[in-house]
Design a protein around this nucleic acid. Structure first.
Lengths: 328, 328
DNA sequence: CTGAAAGCGCTTACAG
DNA sequence: CTGAAAGCGCTTACAG
């Protein structure tokens, strides 16, 4: 068995009480400089480290944030993971990574989060039922939907302003003098795909530009196959708006395979601005999601709720910007 | 304050002792079916869930695995993260994700891992000093270096057989009738880059094929710039072996930019077989790392050490295979 | 400012 | 098989 050095061991060596040792390590507690010095010296000598579990048990608080994610194949999400982890570390919080295979978060994942009494949970591209979300609420655990919304407005969400962004994409494309357009959607019922479609279609309808929609799945292969199908139908449009970048890259490869020139024959616009969009092989014109700002807003909310739980619900939307490159 | 349902509450409702409630939830403990039924009914009614922290405090064990990672921009690593998370979940373990900005794992990250008394730690592309590694050992926490080795053989590591793999890459390239070759390395002192270089060079030296080495950094941009430099020198070789795929993709884009044909003018081989290597825009010939098998070996070791700590050190190496596509 | 003591929610010998 | 009790390593009123 590994022997743990406890506050008691330190207390004995330092010649103070165990409470004093505790006070040295508990932020906000008061100790004299003299005691602090004695304790720190003894602790150093013994290699003392406060036990997080004992601490959490008594305070009923943890420094763990649950981050739920599905599509790590889309580089957008590892980026999100990285930024959250980095930002939370500065605040003294660690992230418990939960990966859901399925579209929807599984009961055992919810169990895990609840068992560890996480200080907050962020759910990204996985779906969560209303019932589960209520579970977190009833446990007073702050929850935010990141880059996704529930179709009720009873929870906190942080997204890019998808509606406005896709309107701007449509307007930009129209200004490029296109005849007809195609929207390639992501997974059917995701709020992101739905909103991007709505904004895009709204402008096209308003301006009377012919348009069609094809359903895909937010993957490279999905984008690739969908675009191949479109060309094989003999109905290549003058512009394609893909609901995310990784699909857009598949679209580009498919169009190239069919010897169509980009942007001359077909223009392509994506969404996210992942690293690869800038690669010379693609040079994708896309809408940049303001990840940094989105992460910041999410953390602000969670921290505020940790300090003083309100259960506040709000749909926060942050603008991004159009990044013009070579594909449109 | 959120009120927690405790084993005591359940005990009262079920009309049994708190110990009996505990036994129902503690694997391996014995309870009669009758008691179990009573407890489960009461627990269900109250929404009871055992407190992980109290449990960890008393058993001095956790179900948390620390996973340390740096380069999430290289799709190889999110893939590794996903596979570990999935496999550990099945065993009832969760993963605490630790992202290091710097090349080397930071003291505060080590603190975190130690404070949470993690059941094991896996360190991927970040570096860890010998001193820190010893820290884990002295706390009897199993540690494995995944896809990286320390330059001492005192720790457990799981890697692809890089030496053999790169020899095979060299032999394959030679069979393609090349005149001279270039090796583009990853970050200088990583074991992977060093080993891949060693195996590759060994064969080239043996067969007397002219070769040069360029130092890069395992990123797309690094590969791109390095290849650009090589061409600008007017010394494009007949084949380039990049130490990982993401650099190889950069190399391809640079060569294309310089209007060199692949594989006719220059052949390119990568390492990893990330998803993108198969994309139509690249069709990269590469060495596939057997992630699944590597993950499996890592987990086997960690589980064995959790059950019975030995501190066993070993360098496990697993073969991968050459994936022939269009670039060589 | 400091110490003795209670208690967080569990597991686990120890009796019965 | 079950219960009463001790104890894991902390925080936090409560006195002094």
């Amino acid at each position: 068995m590994k022997h743990m050095v406890t506050a008691n061991d330190v207390a004995k060596l330092a010649g103070v009480s165990q409470s004093s040792v505790s006070r040295v390590y508990f932020e906000g507690a008061k100790v004299s400089e003299k005691t602090r010095a004695k304790v720190l010296a003894a602790a150093e000598q013994l290699g003392y480290r406060p036990n997080e579990f004992a601490r959490s048990l008594i305070t009923n608080k943890t420094k763990i944030i649950g981050l739920v994610m599905k599509g790590v194949e889309n580089p957008f999400y590892p980026q999100v993971l990285k930024q959250f982890t980095t930002a939370f570390k500065k605040l003294g919080y660690s992230v418990l990574f939960v990966h859901t295979q399925n579209e929807e978060i599984q009961p055992e994942d919810v169990e895990t989060l609840l068992n560890y009494n996480v200080a907050g949970v962020i759910i990204t591209d996985a779906a969560m039922s209303l019932k589960v979300a209520e579970d977190f609420r009833s446990n007073r655990i702050p929850l935010v939907f990141f880059n996704r919304k529930l179709n009720t407005d009873e929870f906190y969400s942080v997204c890019c302003n998808n509606l406005d962004a896709s309107r701007k994409v449509a307007e930009y494309l129209i200004s490029q003098d296109v005849k007809d357009m195609v929207y390639i959607s992501g997974n059917g019922n995701t709020s992101t795909s739905l909103e991007r479609e709505a904004g895009f279609m709204e402008i096209l309808q308003k301006t009377g530009i012919p348009h069609r929609k094809y359903a895909s799945d937010y993957t490279y292969t999905g984008g690739f196959q969908t675009a191949l199908g479109i060309v094989d139908e003999g109905r290549a449009p003058s512009a394609i708006f893909a609901a995310n970048d990784i699909m857009a890259l598949g679209v580009i490869d498919a169009l190239k395979k069919k010897s169509l020139r980009i942007p001359e024959d077909v223009k392509v616009v994506g969404f996210d601005n992942i690293d690869m969009a800038a690669w010379l092989g693609y040079q994708l014109t896309t809408w940049e999601q303001p990840i940094e700002e989105m992460v910041k807003k999410t953390i602000e909310y969670i921290m505020a709720e940790i300090a003083d739980y309100t259960g506040l619900a709000k749909a926060v939307e942050i603008d991004g910007k159009l990044i013009k490159r070579k594909t449109a």
